[in-house]
Design a protein around this nucleic acid. Structure first.
Lengths: 116, 116
DNA sequence: GCAAAAAGAAACGCTTGCGTAACGATCCGC
DNA sequence: GCGGATCGTTACGCAAGCGTTTCTTTTTGC
């Protein structure tokens, strides 16, 4: 069952959520960081730096830096892969799950408030 | 008629749209910039620096800089208000309208592709 | 008129992100 | 084992964003 939106609803929803998020949270994640975070939490593991870079169509240092930032915020964690010690496996954290849960609630709330 | 979303749909939609936008567009607008842009195009004018700053809960220079950046990208325009020449009225542009139109289409497309 | 207030921009130092290129560590083929 | 490939990180110079403060222009109150 897909989500059917009118253009006005689509942009209205994005507007309301962006505005609410800007006002609520001083942590100003970039679009890329948010995309990475959502990908880690919504797509089955394992996740590697290389895989994420390919998925987003960006270079590896971009991923490394995003993980640095979000790691410092406690939203993700990194662990060496013992089966191939060149790899780093990106792990979810409790704090990250809570962050996205709140973000999801915000989307749902703003969706309910959309007119028409 | 509000938009009713499950948590999985809400985050899934955001995930898909963020990912698609990152891949499609190298212009990496911050969440704040996007919020400003959407506000200008979705809320009836006039829009001023001061008003936007209050709406987003940020300082005026943040708005000035965002308008500098998006102005350089052709997404918005600035015009002095002749009735009160201290004010600057923020104007929409054709290019900005096209940008948001494409963005809306992207949201609608990704909404249609959402499972469940 | 003229001081005070208001709006927006500019200046300042700082932080963070970028792309490219180089680097150590590890694995693989032979 | 050893040369080459692969993975993630680090280094570099640069651009852009931030908050605070200061400045310029314009309006307002008296």
């Amino acid at each position: 069952m897909p989500i059917e939106l009118t253009p006005s609803q689509a942009l209205g929803l994005w507007h309301a959520v962006s505005l609410a998020q800007v006002r609520v949270d001083s942590r100003d994640l970039t679009l890329r960081q948010l995309a990475i975070l959502l990908h880690i939490y919504l797509v089955p593991p394992p996740h590697t730096v290389r895989g994420l870079a390919a998925t987003l169509g960006v270079t590896k240092p971009v991923i490394t830096r995003a993980l640095d930032t979000m790691g410092a915020l406690g939203l993700v964690d990194r662990v060496r892969d013992d089966r191939d010690r060149r790899n780093v496996v990106i792990k979810r954290t409790v704090e990250g799950a809570i962050y996205l849960e709140k973000f999801g609630d915000l989307i749902i709330d703003q969706g309910r408030k959309q007119p028409k």
